[in-house]
């Protein structure tokens, strides 16, 4: 079983990212669940989403204690939240950032999701869309195939800019 925790702020698309990832994993023949952890919901508050991917049906509903991968959609969240909490030894981190970031004992990959979204004019209600390009980045990490990622995105969004952004993020993640 592969367990992923996504850190974001309310309104940044963490729920949608989790859903897209689960959908793409399922299209690739895996079982998957995506569960948002709801707290006091408001725009801008730190939130987490959980995704589990497995070869067999998933029977666990409790929160992920020891993720294999942590995704950070908003680097400023690291001032407020310990994103390393419970992260497995040597577990990876994917961070939305234009520049590399060092975190001891963990491989850190970065991709400028915000920049990609703005360049594609993929902005909704003043916020750049981060969830669809993120899926491209995660496809590069090998969790899902790029084809499955794009199919999941197409199923939810008709705007082709989402596809474009995912493809760019796939290319740009510094793997």
């Amino acid at each position: 079983m592969y367990e992923i925790r996504i850190h974001s702020r309310g309104g940044q698309g963490g729920v949608t990212a989790a859903r897209l990832l689960a959908d793409a994993a399922f299209r690739g023949g895996k079982y998957a669940t995506a569960s948002p952890f709801y707290g006091a919901e408001r725009r801008g508050a730190p939130v987490v989403d959980f995704v589990r991917i497995n070869d067999r049906p998933i029977r666990i509903y409790s929160q992920i204690e020891h993720p294999d991968l942590v995704v950070v959609l908003d680097p400023s969240i690291m001032d407020a939240v310990d994103i390393l909490q419970g992260l497995k030894k040597g577990g990876s981190i994917v961070i939305n950032s234009p520049k590399p970031l060092e975190i001891p004992r963990h491989p850190v990959f970065h991709v400028d999701l915000t920049g990609i979204a703005i360049a594609q004019n993929l902005v909704v209600a003043g916020s750049p869309v981060l969830d669809t390009p993120l899926l491209g980045a995660l496809a590069k990490m090998g969790f899902v195939s790029l084809d499955a990622a794009l199919a999941a995105i197409r199923d939810m969004f008709s705007d082709e800019r989402n596809i474009k952004a995912a493809e760019i993020a796939f290319r740009e993640l510094n793997l």
Binding site: A22, D23, Y31, A32, S35, P36, Y38, I58, Y61
Partner: peptide, 12 residues
């Protein structure tokens, strides 16, 4: 159905 853990959890 359990609030959140089933109502808001996505599964195939």
């Amino acid at each position: 159905l359990d609030g959140f853990s089933l109502s808001h959890t996505m599964q195939p």
